[in-house]
């Protein structure tokens, strides 16, 4: 309890750590999501290209 109390400064110390680690987590999540989306978009584009090549003229 003494540790969580932080000498009475808990309303300032813990929110600081919370904000920082939420942003650290969000940065990882956003970067991963961006990469997955980029790969998916590239894959879809390639599939469309292949379909267009296979279509009889």
């Amino acid at each position: 309890m003494k540790f969580l109390w932080m000498g009475g400064y808990y309303p300032f110390v813990w929110p600081s750590y919370a904000v920082t680690f939420v942003v650290i987590g969000l940065n990882i999540y956003w970067a991963k999501r961006l990469l997955v989306r980029a790969r998916r978009a590239a894959h879809r584009r390639m599939e469309i290209q292949l379909e267009m090549q296979e279509e009889p003229t």
Partner: peptide, 27 residues
């Protein structure tokens, strides 16, 4: 680490029509 992850996505978006991207995404 996060910068490199974002950089990969950025490069992929910019190069989406390139031949190497086709090999990379396995289409």
């Amino acid at each position: 680490a996060v910068l490199l992850m974002r950089l990969r996505a950025e490069v992929l978006n910019r190069e989406r029509t390139a031949r190497w991207v086709r090999e990379e995404v396995g289409a």
